[in-house]
Design a protein around this nucleic acid. Sequence first.
DNA 1: CTCTAATACAACCATTTGATTGCAAATTAG
DNA 2: CTAATTTGCAATCAAATGGTTGTATTAGAG
Lengths: 107, 107
Amino acid sequence: MNRLFRALADATRRDIVRRTLVADVSVSQLADSYDMSFAAVQKHVAVLEDAGLVTKEAHGRERMVRGNLARIRQAQLLLDGFEELWRSRIDRLDILLAEGDLASPGT
Amino acid sequence: MNRLFRALADATRRDIVRRTLVADVSVSQLADSYDMSFAAVQKHVAVLEDAGLVTKEAHGRERMVRGNLARIRQAQLLLDGFEELWRSRIDRLDILLAEGDLASPGT
DNA sequence: CTCTAATACAACCATTTGATTGCAAATTAG
DNA sequence: CTAATTTGCAATCAAATGGTTGTATTAGAG
């Protein structure tokens, strides 16, 4: 999870994910789009690959990069878990309020 | 977004978010839970606060930390956007297939 | 075969991160 | 008032990050 979220914490990498989710793109095609060296883009792709967010497939001398939605879903699941926890806080407040309602009439 | 995802890319910080989504917790209560110095935990909370994932509220000499679900939702929205993009890839394939269907019968 | 394009990888550098310790300030407890 | 808690903040340090350039390898074009 650390690597997953860290990989998403960079605008260039998020853009690469966006593009490779829509269509396969070669590393050099990606490199042409950003104002940095080929090697820098190559490293970003490597970070994404290490995080499982993209895969690479050799096609001749090119490596086609493909976004991996399954991995994105894992991040979504974690955030969904946060949302559920938050709801449990509301539930606790409801319980407290309910207890208050029970106590008040008695006084 | 960079700060948001970077803040989530650390297990200790994700745990702090979990705990503070369920109930308000003071910085020192948090510090007691982790095997690191008070200052280190304080810094993690500061990173989360900077990312908008938690807020702090003074209560006497304690600062109660509270998780901010709204900010988590922003991360969810971004990931949801990825998912929609991915679906658009499928749509394009469908279009290609449909075009193929139109062409094939004519040949 | 030769040249070029695409990629991989290493070395290097500046900046950021994640942790530490130490000290000061504010608030509560006794 | 005095002492203990809680927090904030600065200085410091090792490791990771994000970028660079240079070199080597591999595959397609002519």
